[in-house]
Write a protein that binds this DNA or RNA. Sequence first.
DNA 1: ACACCAAGCGGAGGGGATCG
DNA 2: CGATCCCCTCCGCTTGGTGT
Length: 628
Amino acid sequence: MAAYDTLTISSSTSSHNILRLTAPDSRSNQFNMDTFEHDLNFEADGLLDDVNTGIPSLPFTPSYELSDAFSTTFEDPFSYHAGPFESLLDDPNLENNGDTNSSDPDNKLLGFGAPIMKVPTLDDNGQTWPAMTAELYGMFFVAEDVFGGETARRPMELTCYRRNLFQISGNIILSRSITRIINDQGQHVPIYNLIATISALESIEGKSTEIISVPWKTANATTSEDRAGAAPPQWPLDLSINPELDPTCVSIPIAWKRLQFKHATANNGRRKGLQQHYVIQINLMATLATGEKIKLAEIQSGAIIVRGRSPRNFDSRKDVPVSDKKGEPKPRTMSNEVGTTVKVDPATSQSSYRFYAPNAVQQPLDLIPDWPISLASSSLTPEQPPTPSQRTKRNSSHNRPPIPKARWKADSSTARPTTQNSAAPIDLSLADDDAGYMNPQVSSRNSSGLSDRDRDRGIGQRGNAEKEGGVNAKTSSSKKAISVGSPEDNEEALYEYFPLSLDDCRCDLQASRCTSYGCARRFKSATGKGQDQEILLSRRLILLNFGEIQGDGSGRQSPRTTKEIDLIELVLKWLRDWQTRKPKMIEAREAMQMSCSENALIIKAVEILMDRYTVERQKLAQAFKARV
DNA sequence: ACACCAAGCGGAGGGGATCG
DNA sequence: CGATCCCCTCCGCTTGGTGT
């Protein structure tokens, strides 16, 4: 992987910059992943004994001497986008460039992360970094406290039902002169036929999971397989389209519609430690002369819980709808016809992450053709933008948050949006006050009666809280799901990563390498439960980064399940907190008489991460300075 | 090892919205 | 107003996690 920098594209004000971000000398700074065995077995008691010898090149010198930029004050409220590190990447222009309120958890949840480069890609001027953005549209919501009181501080997680359709749309910005990559041997290899594909991974074992695209019921689906749905189409990326817009870069809209997860995630609400998640990937692929397909880059969604088809099994009063991006009208075109469009309001299509900065070249997403589409991408014929009246209609009828009927179903005459005000999505801001949360829709739903069917089916399905406390109970419960009082609580809730006890983390570390839950169960029963709840670890952070550490950077799928930028932010928080946490962990090791190796393994893991991300941060800082 | 039970599945169908 | 769609729910069953 010579001269290959694994940094993600983080920030830029123009597509040129995005594509031409100067990478620092990766030779000197690159973290040597090869020192880790891919099949590192964390069950081995002796592992820790081998830590130092097994990874000789790892600079095991905990970076406590951090830059002044890092606060070492544990009480320092953690602001999701306020880190000094981020300031390196911030471009103030972005703030005024349609971005997007990146602190909005809705966007946070529905957006995709920064591009992850898999191989160095070259154009006429050297290495180039494709920019990729995308967003989920569909009936997504966030659910909290599915495990009852055990995880009361568990933050929201993006959730959907397996049967619900969703779509993805976004943009890929590429240099028009992308022609080759650098392979593992450092050779320049020509590439052809760029395409965009989607796929999904599950979180526990990192295996791929199927996403299907469901045909219209009236479509010519003759076989049961056709009716059940097929693999989503691949998007060809024509680098020659619209040369008048930008002679050097091309912005290509992409979209997949009528998608469903084929399978639900495992353990929905069963075990807090083994909740499975799915992560959707959008892949930028290319074909080599040999016909082999190679992944150039990818972006990943956040972790998604996919429920099965029995909403009654879930206490959906705690579900909080995420802003309805899907909300665009669904053209009833019966349609797999070429030329129909995905009606994506550009206003909602802005990138969720300020880091993307795709706006410079971005085309209105109204240009996104429906799929399947002629593979000739020159057929990306623009559609007339919606008229104001159309837009009004769309907004009024669809831009509402998708309130799960399972819980808030109400008389249709009142439940459906009646005012323009309702177009505003529910703000999931954690700082919401009552007024902010209680939007008119929810209010109207609450105040309206149950449908006859709901009454017939009984209150039993509607949850005890509502039965007992009625509207108030429901609203307070729902509000609880998204509103957290203290800055400290906000800090936790702002994370996608929920803290677990050290014990849980240990279990997860093991479980992530078990091939069955039985294995995890045996492990857990062997290790016991909850011995020190004071020590909190970010389960996912550890899992993700162990997976990352085990990766070899060769493009092999590693079990990353979140955005790399987020990881860096997380690690920065860990850096701040570490000095506080480490003594507690060491203390706990003695007090708990827990396995020394397990405790030390976690400590070691965090230190590895600190080292690595300190280096990453320095590299980013250097890159930024070089640009400026 | 066993029983219990929650979660998920396929099949089926209803309610409401939208379209022609 | 009928056709169609999406979403939701029920039923009966299977699977598999959990407790004893």
